[in-house]
Amino acid sequence: MEFGFTREEEAFRGEILGFLDQHRGVDGYFHRGTDTADGVRRVYRALGARGWLSLSWPSEFGGAGLPPAYEFLLWDELAYARVARPPMGPGLVAKALMTHGTAEQRGRFLDNLARGRTAFCLGYSEPDAGSDLAAVRTRARREGSEYVVDGAKCWTSNAHWSDYIWLLCRTGTPQSRSRGLSVLIVPLDSPGVHVSPIPTLDGGRLNEVRFDGVRVPSADRVGAENEGWQVVSSALAVERHVQFPPKRLRRDLQDLVDWTESAGLADDPLVRRRLSELAVRVAEVEALALALLGEVTSGQPSAVPAAHHKLAGTLLAQDIARAAAEFDSPEALVSGTDVEFMWRQAILETIGGGTSEVMRGLIARQEFGLAG
């Protein structure tokens, strides 16, 4: 079994590092609010100009047709540099449009997504549904050639600077669960759309997005009516390998090591032992990430490997951040310091993209056949 990258892929990593030399000042990996939005969008446009937002797109849609490893390397290195996370538009949205979209939709969006000119956010979670997407209540009622949308989404990343929301809404009966959902593309400047900030524990911003009688042309529905579950599920399946880059953890650990040295703790044998334990776990998460990449590359079902990787990685992010407090340093509890920020930020990682409880439930049901 091969766990490394090809010579061509490693050469591409070198190109990425050269690109990052021009963009290391963009601190956009952590969503600290609107102050990073302009820098992140500049990075996306620069990536788009190189064709790097469409690396794995099929050539028939204007992509490079490269294996998923190229995407993995790109976002892994951008995570280590703290520059930016993968945008939803060229990833999940574009790949769903390739499979489920109309020719008109693909013509309208794909080129701008590939060039980093158009930004999407995901309208999935709701106040009363949380991570249970089958319980979505935001309602899209059909009136002739339009839908009228009422409801609310919450904890929506980047809605305050995105152009469109990829909206999962209910077009079936209230009891229809996953069988009554549809996906609509909604411009965020539409009449009746209201975006409000939700402050986060790390000082950043998520959003509530409310829909009050928002009219959306039925031509902007992706896939058939009431088949939105298939649209979001298939798109997620091809994006799992880039959603939690493991090099983010290697950077977290390196920052912790650097901090112990500056705090005069590096020679403490208990500190060194704890750092060694964390280093082993970082290597474990990297191995899980490569195993997941292998499943995605071979076209195998990847939901369970992705859940293992996400669960292990986000819990480790918390443990790396918590270690500074375990070393009895007051700085770890002082607001505004880097180590204190990392603790607050790491907590959010166990929630975004599916909570740890959801990941454990998925593993229990699909890998071990447990009911619940």
Results as ranks from 00 to 15, higher is better:
residue 6 T to N: 05
residue 8 E to A: 15
residue 9 E to V: 09
residue 19 F to N: 02
residue 19 F to R: 05
residue 23 H to Y: 15
residue 27 D to F: 10
residue 29 Y to I: 05
residue 29 Y to P: 02
residue 31 H to M: 13
residue 32 R to Q: 13
residue 35 D to M: 13
residue 35 D to W: 11
residue 39 G to P: 04
residue 54 S to F: 02
residue 58 P to W: 14
residue 59 S to E: 12
residue 64 A to Y: 01
residue 64 A to I: 01
residue 69 A to W: 14
residue 80 Y to M: 09
residue 82 R to L: 13
residue 82 R to E: 12
residue 82 R to W: 11
residue 84 A to W: 05
residue 91 G to I: 01
residue 93 V to K: 11
residue 96 A to D: 05
residue 103 A to I: 04
residue 106 R to E: 06
residue 107 G to F: 06
residue 108 R to M: 08
residue 108 R to G: 06
residue 119 A to H: 13
residue 120 F to V: 04
residue 122 L to Q: 04
residue 122 L to F: 12
residue 123 G to W: 10
residue 129 A to Y: 05
residue 133 L to Q: 06
residue 144 G to T: 04
residue 151 G to E: 05
residue 153 K to Q: 13
residue 153 K to L: 12
residue 154 C to Y: 08
residue 158 N to R: 12
residue 163 D to H: 14
residue 169 C to A: 00
residue 170 R to G: 06
residue 180 G to R: 11
residue 181 L to M: 13
residue 185 I to W: 07
residue 185 I to P: 02
residue 205 R to P: 00
residue 207 N to R: 08
residue 210 R to T: 10
residue 211 F to V: 07
residue 216 V to H: 10
residue 217 P to Q: 15
residue 218 S to E: 15
residue 220 D to C: 15
residue 222 V to K: 10
residue 222 V to M: 12
residue 245 P to L: 00
residue 247 K to C: 06
residue 248 R to S: 09
residue 253 L to Q: 03
residue 256 L to F: 09
residue 263 A to C: 09
residue 265 L to E: 07
residue 265 L to H: 02
residue 266 A to L: 04
residue 267 D to N: 09
residue 268 D to I: 08
residue 270 L to P: 01
residue 275 L to I: 09
residue 276 S to P: 00
residue 280 V to S: 08
residue 282 V to K: 05
residue 286 E to Y: 05
residue 290 L to I: 10
residue 296 V to L: 06
residue 299 G to S: 01
residue 300 Q to I: 02
residue 306 A to E: 03
residue 306 A to I: 02
residue 311 L to W: 09
residue 316 L to Y: 12
residue 322 R to I: 04
residue 327 F to Y: 05
residue 332 A to C: 10
residue 337 T to G: 13
residue 350 T to R: 12
residue 359 M to C: 12
residue 364 A to V: 00
residue 366 Q to L: 15
residue 366 Q to S: 12
residue 372 G to M: 11
